[in-house]
Design a protein around this nucleic acid. Structure first.
Lengths: 250, 250
DNA sequence: CGGTCAGTTGAGAACTTTCAACATGGGTGG
DNA sequence: CCACCCATGTTGAAAGTTCTCAACTGACCG
């Protein structure tokens, strides 16, 4: 059932049937369904589990006292929120949904048990954690150095590749279920400017965005226009030395 | 010798004498001294060790093809660069010094051996890693939502508290050895604007900055002006349940 | 003494925000 | 079934912030 998550981990290494079963049963333990714009975790909480997004989109965000909000990470199906975060006393940020969503709560104990018994999974979770950190760094670059259109184009490239990594694209097309206000909070821009920047990208033929449907006619062109290089996503099967060798050949 | 690092870890938990010795000997293995503005790690490298800053300041940065540079993290004495990063194939960023610096190279094997034998250290390293990630998120908020003066004030608050955490402040005073150009690259602003913003902060009486010497006459005031809350640094001795109980009482 | 680096200043240009109005669409109650 | 409402997206114009360019200062070094 956590097929997007499994698919993502297999970008790093091939899992054995036993690995997959272990993850499936862990994810089956406790499942929740929530509406759009709901908090899953609030700032100040102390949670003892990890959340895995199964369907829908969510985000990690921080809010300033005066109401300004910054989305610091977007979560799409297959994304794991806050691995190991429970070493810290309390959450310094919140996690909320952008769309209706379902997610699995995996307890720390369950995750620890799996990691102990399945070293390949442990490595893959490590990889996932490090890639998340790398994405966070790239967002810092994005906000610090890129112009509005580069910034937005960069985000769309990243999301497209991440969605493709979990099997949620078709050809050069994917969904973009966020509102323009969500994009604004993620990019540190006003909604008005997001709107105009999207129009610029459309006018330049770099994207086709109708409603929640995004098409990127020429990904290489969008990447070039956004100074995007995919290396920071580390989608290069770098854990192949750990690949499971199944006993049964085809 | 890695006194700043030890002191930082003790913000989280108290280490035993054995813990401290293990860390000291690990850090003594290989020590390097480099000048200012030198790269310690280059983008594309594949390193098998972790670097611990002993003296001087360094940074993690990413550079765009057209030369724009974003500093995504600052390292002060006691900071550890890139724990566990070697799960990834190659570095997606570089690490360079800002000032002359000395650092210790700790091999992955050494670190792994310590972690296995000293669970308290392993937990403390985890805490350090998670705090670094938290700081990275806060920088994203900083670049996305705060105005130039809030942004710069926020950074100065953070640096002051981090330096205080490793014993490198005296009263309300510390060093700030970066150039304005470095600050600009870290804050996503131009050097000219950094210069003017520093003047604003000075004029408002929030900082006194002469050469490399920074004084913050009223930290609470600077925090308030910058919408700074220290919770994200997690300096709250949250690992106290792990505190070492020394067999010898004083 | 000349050169270089860091810091400072002025002025205009460019980018982004704010405010306010208007358009569109889906959903709800009458 | 229609009327209304609200969330989302769109547009215009003025204001505000930040950048760029260019010049100049002061300190340190060879």
């Amino acid at each position: 059932m956590p097929r997007h998550f499994l698919r993502k981990l297999e970008l790093y290494t091939h899992l054995s049937a036993a690995d997959r079963e272990a993850l499936e049963s862990a994810v089956g333990e406790k499942r929740r369904r929530v509406g759009p714009r709901e908090d899953i975790v609030r700032e100040g909480d102390h949670t003892g589990h990890v959340n895995l997004v199964l369907e829908g989109w969510a985000c990690r965000y921080k809010q300033l006292e005066d109401g300004r909000r910054q989305i610091v990470a977007l979560f799409v199906p297959g994304d794991l929120c806050d691995t190991h975060i429970d070493v810290l006393r309390e959450m310094d940020h919140a996690i909320g949904t952008l769309t209706p969503a379902t997610y699995a709560e995996v307890s720390r104990d369950t995750l620890g048990a799996i990691a102990a018994r399945h070293p390949r999974i442990m490595q893959a979770l490590w990889w996932d954690t490090l890639v998340s950190a790398s994405i966070q760094r790239e967002w810092t670059v994005n906000l610090g150095q890129r112009s509005a259109s580069e910034r937005l184009g960069h985000l769309l490239c990243e999301l497209f590749l991440r969605l493709r990594g979990v099997g949620l694209t078709e050809g050069n097309h994917c969904v973009l279920p966020t509102t323009q206000a969500d994009l604004a909070d993620a990019m540190g821009l006003s909604t008005v400017h997001i709107n105009r920047t999207l129009q610029d990208l459309r006018r330049a033929g770099l994207i086709v965005l109708k409603g929640r449907n995004l098409t990127i006619p020429d990904l290489a062109a969008l990447q070039a226009a956004s100074l995007f290089t995919p290396n920071y996503l580390h989608f290069d099967h770098i854990g192949r030395h750990l690949d499971a060798v199944e006993p049964v050949a085809v």
